[in-house]
Design a protein around this nucleic acid. Structure first.
Lengths: 170, 170
DNA sequence: CAATTGTTTCTGTCAAGACTGAAACAATTG
DNA sequence: CAATTGTTTCAGTCTTGACAGAAACAATTG
């Protein structure tokens, strides 16, 4: 699925190097994985590409390497930028924009999970208000609520731990 | 979205009681929430209904209350059963099957998250093998790997904590 | 300031899959 | 064992959204 461009005279350093079959597979796997979680496959592939690229990548290059249209790249890139997973960097003397995986991508990923579980907690809380005391379903919703609280808590701690992971170098 | 059946002479206890607007909203919210996470909306609504019902619910009743076809109920119910989120119970003297939320639904939910993160860890590990030592992308994949390991670990602990939550009653 | 190059937006096409209704199937009961 | 009731499977419809290609837009450079 990864097609190397026939470098048309450009003198930019190579985008990919190493076991290119393994890297193609990696990019493809990322696409499939993210698709399972509601992110467009091409978005996942862009993330995969950015993760294994030797240097920042231009939309044009993404289009060539991943063999998809520029407009698809544009759309997906914008989602990834808005989600805070990807960042734009300007390379001196370059006209085109270049993109990299955000430093905070993994952190953002945790934050998104946290937001999801908070939404579920709110649903549980509101539902609970529709049940009178002693209702047989109250127990179930209370269990649901305590589950969301527990998970939310764990995410919060995980987030802190991840953020401070470098601060404790042996 | 929730339409109460015009009880046709049956003498079964009521399915829902309490603030029925709030309960309808709850059921609908569950549908929307799960849809965001790749579960069919009707599946989420079934879970919502089972959470707030006063007693086990038959497929027939689900169809009436949620206003969807029996075949949709059947299909979604099967997925939920296979996922271990819903269980069948037999009511004495009743011909029809009845269903409830599984005792282990929340536990299963954590297990599913755990499986997801494990898959991502494997993708990272395989990708890492395609990069020679010193490759500028190695650092990024190593960070990804350590993130997955950290999250996987947290899920494992969370799972244990949830499983043993009753064993330590003040 | 025209021309060239790069990027985004817009519209149409296509594919995936959720849902329905009907038919097939199973099983219980008189 | 026929008839009735309940459940699943199947085929078709419809909606959603990803993607491509073309046009519009922006901006840089000679």
């Amino acid at each position: 699925m990864v097609s190397d461009e026939t470098d048309s005279g450009s003198d930019s350093p190579p985008l990919l190097s190493g076991d290119s079959d393994a890297l193609s597979q990696f990019i493809e796997n990322m696409g499939l994985y993210f698709e399972d979680y509601g992110i467009p496959r091409i978005g996942g592939r862009i993330l995969g590409l950015l993760l294994v690229a030797r240097r920042p990548v231009s939309p044009e290059e993404m289009s060539e390497v991943l063999q998809v249209s520029r407009s698809s790249i544009s759309t997906n890139l914008r989602s990834l930028l808005m989600a805070g997973l990807v960042e734009r960097v300007s390379l001196p003397g370059e006209r085109s924009d270049y993109y990299v995986i955000s430093e905070e991508a993994w952190e953002r990923s945790l934050e998104m999970r946290l937001e999801g579980i908070q939404a579920l907690r709110e649903i549980a809380e509101e539902g609970l208000q529709g049940l009178d005391a002693g209702h047989p379903a109250r127990q179930r919703l209370e269990e649901m609520l305590s589950w969301t609280v527990m998970v939310e808590d764990a995410y919060r701690k995980l987030l802190e731990a991840w953020q401070s992971r470098k601060e404790v170098p042996a």
